[in-house]
């Protein structure tokens, strides 16, 4: 899919909370010491943080890097599966906080881990159709892992915000985008349940890989590009293993995708995952480099994008903290109880 007018990423901002819980502290309680962990530690939010506060911070970074008056945004869309309110948009708080109100569209999106990337595709379309000058897409989560479940080791907090605008002033222009969606119930959460259910091994081949690879191949075919035409590749990262396998299956090499594997240090930020990976790449990319990005969300589907950095890629890069800066900002916690307390998992009534 291509837009009518050229669009690109004019600004981006990332956010990761500073708290980290190590896998060993979780494993101790559940009798799982001695087994390997997908990641050594994961990020979790402070008691005064949630998807809204984190989105606001990422959005402020994106606006700063875009160098625009926030009133020029015609949309603020937040994709998440950890909405603080089941009914009441997170996006209105973000729009209000960054000064984009009142002439703005705001909405929250849900599609598990691809809620952020589909907001990106929509923002690209909003600008690309000529309806908007600028539109913001955010993917952010404070992922909830069921206590004692294996996903608890990776369900993390973080994400990023993107301002789409005219390609002429972009840090990276959008070349093409594609989506690949089927109804596949590999992982889900019913409305009044606190924690999701998942199909364990069913979440692999028929879910993550089927959609990621299906989307990736279609996008490569549409654009006539090969993996070697790209400098960077970003995939959804529920753990370090899945994206590496998908990348290698498609023909990408580690020097293309390792930089984006933020999950190695903080775990799976769900709707923020591939968006954070993209931000990590944009932090170091040089002009004229192609970026391949394919997200994945359970339910299931993938959104794919081909970007090409412009000579403006580093223009206002310093106006917001880099992903590395956020990853390095760590307050390690080794008390599982403190993590449970902050995540609201200890019931006092």
């Amino acid at each position: 899919m291509k837009t009518v007018r050229p669009v690109g990423l004019c600004g981006y901002g990332a956010y990761v909370p500073r708290l980290r819980i190590d896998a060993r502290s979780i494993a101790k309680i559940w009798g799982r010491l001695g087994r390997g962990f997908p990641v050594a530690e994961k990020s979790f939010p402070g008691a005064d943080e949630d998807t809204i506060t984190m989105s606001i911070e990422a959005a402020r970074g994106a606006v700063a890097r875009a160098g625009i008056d926030p009133r020029k945004l015609s949309a603020v869309w937040v994709g998440t599966e950890s909405k603080p309110y089941a009914v009441k948009p997170s996006s209105t708080v973000v729009a209000e906080a960054i000064g984009a109100t009142p002439f703005v569209n705001a909405a929250d999106l849900e599609f598990a881990c691809k809620a952020g990337s589909e907001a990106m595709q929509m923002a690209a379309a909003f600008v690309g159709s000529g309806m908007a000058e600028y539109a913001m897409a955010i993917g952010m989560d404070t992922a909830q892992g069921k206590p004692g479940d294996e996903l608890e080791y990776t369900a993390a907090a973080g994400g990023a915000a993107y301002v789409f605008g005219p390609a002429e002033s972009a840090a990276a222009r959008l070349v093409a985008s594609r989506s690949f969606v089927t109804d596949t119930a590999d992982f889900f959460r019913r409305a009044h349940m606190r924690y999701p259910e998942h199909g364990m091994r069913f979440t692999g081949k028929p879910a993550y890989f089927h959609h990621t690879l299906g989307c990736a191949r279609a996008l490569l075919e549409e654009t006539g590009l090969k993996p070697s035409d790209f400098r960077w590749a970003v995939f959804h990262q529920p753990n370090p293993r899945f994206p590496r396998e998908a990348a290698e299956e498609l023909g990408f090499a580690p020097e293309q995708f390792e930089k984006s594997l933020v999950c190695k240090r903080i775990g799976n930020t769900y709707a923020g995952s591939s968006l954070l990976g993209l931000a990590a790449v944009l932090d170091v990319a040089s002009p004229g480099e192609r970026i391949f990005m394919v997200s994945y969300g359970s339910g299931a589907g993938s959104d794919g994008f081909v970007f090409e950095t412009t000579e403006n890629v580093a223009l206002r890069r310093g106006d917001a903290p880099s992903v590395d800066c956020l990853l390095d900002r760590r307050q390690p916690v080794t008390e599982y109880a403190r993590y449970l307390h902050n995540a609201g998992k200890i019931r006092t009534h």
Partner: peptide, 13 residues
């Protein structure tokens, strides 16, 4: 910008 106050699970944040 952070959560300053919330009144239980049903109230506004």
């Amino acid at each position: 910008t952070r959560l300053i106050r919330s009144t239980g699970e049903a109230g506004p944040r």
